[in-house]
Amino acid sequence: MARSQGMMVKLPPGFRFHPTDEELVVEYLKRKAFSFPLPASVIPEIQISRFDPWDLPGGSERERYFFSAREIKYRNGKRPNRASIAGYWKATGKDKQIVAKGGNQIVGAKKTLVFYRGKAPAGERTDWIMHEYRLAGALQEQPLTREWVLCRIFRKRRSSTRTTDRADLVDSEAGSDAEPSCVTEINGEAGDGDDSCCSSR
C-alpha cells in the first residue's frame, strides 16, 4: 500500500503511478473536491505557486502529481495566479475535455501550460510542462467549499528541432490516456484482471 509522509509519496518497489485522464479526474480530483476517501495516498497536497518546477517534492527525474488549491491572482477577479518564485506558467493550446467512459458526460478539462523563467511577458521558455486538471460539466456546477486542481508536472525530452519538440509534447499528452490502470508494474505486465487504480499482481 502506498503511504504519504508529509509531501513525499512512496509506492511499493516495482510499481509506478500511471493514471489515465479520466482516472485522475473521477477517482482522485472529484473525490478530493468533495472530501471523499481517495483510492490511495499517492498524490500530495501543495501550493504550486510556492515552488519552481525543479524544486517540487519528489525529484525532477520523473513526472509528479499534486493537488493544489486554485489561487486567484486578484481578490476581485477570476484569473488564476500562474506566477512562481523564478517565473510563471503560460497556457498553450486549447483545453481538452475529459469524458467519462460509457457515456458522453463531460467530467473534467485538461489545460497544458509551459513554464517560463523570468518576468512576463519576456520570460525564457523552459522544458517544464504542466497538465492542469479541473472539474467540468455537471461536477463543476455543484457547490464546493474550496476549488481544487490536480497538476501533472514533468520535464519534456529535449530534441533537435522545434517540430520534434512539438511531437514530443503531443506524445506526452497522449501517454496519459494510454494505460488502463493508475498503478502498474514497471515491467509493463498487466495485473490479473484487476481494473482498480492501485492494483498489483
Rank of each mutant, 00 (worst) to 15 (best):
D127I: 00
G58N: 15
R62Y: 04
R64S: 00
K96D: 12
I129K: 14
I129Y: 07
P80F: 00
K94V: 00
S68V: 01
M130W: 08
D55V: 04
R75L: 10
N81D: 14
I85G: 08
Y88W: 15
Q105Y: 02
D127K: 11
R64M: 05
F66S: 03
K78V: 06
K94H: 07
K101C: 12
E124I: 12
P121S: 02
A120S: 13
E71Q: 15
P53W: 09
G108S: 10
L113P: 11
K119P: 04
I129D: 00
K78G: 09
W128K: 11
Y88P: 02
T92I: 05
V99M: 07
Y133C: 08
K110E: 09
E124G: 03
G118K: 03
G58I: 09
R117H: 13
R62E: 10
L56E: 03
I129P: 08
E71I: 00
K111M: 06
Q105A: 07
P80D: 10
L113S: 10
Y88V: 01
D95H: 07
I129S: 11
Q97H: 10
S84F: 02
K90W: 05
Y74F: 10
L56N: 02
R75Q: 14
F67P: 15
Y65I: 00
N76I: 05
P53H: 12
Y74D: 15
I72E: 15
N76E: 08
G108N: 08
G58Y: 05
I129A: 05
E132H: 03
S84T: 15
G118D: 06
P53K: 13
R82G: 01
T126P: 15
S68L: 06
R125C: 06
S68K: 12
A122T: 14
T126R: 12
E132N: 08
Q105H: 03
E63W: 01
W89Q: 01
A122H: 15
R79I: 01
A69W: 15
N76G: 02
A120M: 05
Y65C: 00
K101H: 15
R75D: 07
P80V: 04
G87C: 09
V114A: 09
K90Q: 10
N76P: 09
K119N: 05
K101W: 10
Y133W: 09
K73V: 00
K90E: 10
G87D: 14
I85R: 13
P80M: 06
S84V: 11
Y88R: 01
W89I: 00
Q105I: 10
K96N: 08
L113M: 10
A120R: 13
A109F: 14
Q97R: 14
I85T: 10
K111Q: 08
G108M: 07
Y65P: 03
R64E: 00
R64V: 00
A69T: 14
W128I: 04
H131S: 02
Y116G: 02
I85S: 07
P53S: 05
R125F: 06
S68E: 06
I85Q: 14
A86V: 03
E124P: 06
N104F: 11
W128A: 13
P80E: 13
W89K: 03
E63Q: 08
M130Q: 09
